[in-house]
Design a protein around this nucleic acid. Structure first.
Lengths: 256, 256
DNA sequence: ATCGATTTGTTCGTATGTATT
DNA sequence: CAATACATACGAACAAATCGA
């Protein structure tokens, strides 16, 4: 039941052609394009199909159309083409190594900023939701990971850095889609409980308003999770990070 | 000569409506939509307009169309809606504080990974380009910032983390667009030279294959740049980061 | 200020190719 | 094979916005 590949519809080909025109500098930012009728005849397609392609580029703000005047290459077309490529890579070319490594880079900082910027009420609410989810996971282990991602996304939101929060949201989504099953394969009760303890520990750090501790907990939390997957896959992706870890002085967690 | 706001074209309204349908759960992932004819008549628009809207959602992989079968809500529609929102926020709702803070979060790690993953040839090439750009900047100070961004983007590329590299690329683009002039306003010869020294220093750390040093240099480099802007704007955005800096032990740079 | 030319925005009718039954 | 349902694609037309004479 695998559907055929799209073999690139006409409008997709048109998009590529037009983006190439801009990237190659033949269509400079600010210049006015030929009219839709001219373009459609020169591309040898109907005006409707051309419009469908242009609508997508307009949506990315690579082109801008003004009724009665014409269509222009937008002033920041190149930046928006980068954005489009970024978006495409996020969907299609993201490896699990890249995704996990990105979490390791960003999420500890999210914990840091969440700790210094969230209100007491927000922390309490986060704790409540976590406790509720912990109860649920004892019933259905599968649900645990969904909630785990939720917890991480909420931390990112509390950081007040919308960009990074959105980025992490997309990263977590992508992990859910690509490797949800693989994640679950290597999970047992002990790991779940360790993960939950980390969450509890992190919240306590936030309550103490100790951002550096929160950052460290988040780092170790994600790192240990990656290590499990890493060992299972027997890859060497994070070997260097492991070396770094030895050089970090890790605080004593026994106080909790 | 300011053009009127679009007052949301028909297709834009349609996109919003359809995304709402999916986000609210009325259109579940995997379900088949009514045919284009039915939809266009129930939305009271022509088929072409409907198709223009659907093309955009198909492009985001929120919907998928199969000729002869129909259009479906894609299985990972919600994730892709997040991506779409992420993309919109990146374009429209990114503040300079968010952008700069994101650089401070990610770029030091990019320097870290670039140091352990780039080849000797790549480092040499980077150095050559930097030296060439340094000569140029002495002639036209304005060009300096473009080249500065280029340098930072190349470091990110060398990290081999495509996701973060793309992200940083978009961030840098956004900064160029939004605040290029403001950046330049507070720049004098001394700052440019300090910046150049940082770049040289960073490359030397990469050559020594000292990732932690590279990371620290990058952090301090971006931090000091932000501080300049920060002081000029007299905001308190990075107050907490300043406090943290006091707690970091900074290596002695005199060896260079 | 009106008119006409140009261009995008929108609609309708129709034909074709593809998959299901 | 035939009938059906649907997306894909084309062409002609009108509406609305804009600009210049």
């Amino acid at each position: 039941m695998i559907p055929k590949l799209n073999k690139s519809s006409l409008s997709n080909q048109l998009i590529k052609i037009m983006v190439d025109q801009i990237e190659s500098g033949k269509w400079q930012p600010g210049t006015k394009l030929p009219s839709e009728i001219e373009l459609s005849s020169s591309f040898n397609v109907s005006r409707n199909i051309l419009r469908e392609s242009m609508k997508i580029l307009v949506n990315f703000e690579i082109l801008t159309s003004k009724a009665g005047i014409g269509t222009f290459v937008s002033e920041n077309a190149i930046a928006n083409i980068h954005n489009m490529h970024f978006f495409e890579n996020l969907k299609n070319n993201s490896t699990i190594e890249n995704l996990l490594e990105t979490r390791l880079i960003i999420e500890p900082e999210m914990a840091y900023y969440a700790t210094i910027r969230s209100t007491d009420d927000e922390i309490n609410e986060l704790e409540l939701e976590m406790l509720n989810n912990n109860i649920k996971k004892h019933e259905i282990a599968n649900f645990f990971y969904t909630n785990d991602f939720d917890f991480h996304y909420k931390i990112a939101q509390l950081s007040r850095n919308i960009l990074c929060a959105n980025f992490i949201h997309s990263i977590l989504d992508e992990l859910k889609l690509n490797d949800y099953s693989k994640f679950n394969k290597y999970v047992d009760k002990n790991i779940i409980n360790e993960s939950l303890n980390n969450h509890t520990y992190l919240i306590s750090a936030m309550k103490k308003r100790d951002p550096l501790l929160a950052k460290e907990i988040m780092y170790n939390h994600i790192f240990s999770r990656i290590s499990i997957i890493n060992e299972s896959y027997n890859t060497d992706m994070l070997l260097s990070k492991k070396m770094e870890k030895k050089r970090l002085k890790v605080k004593d967690n026994s106080s909790i």
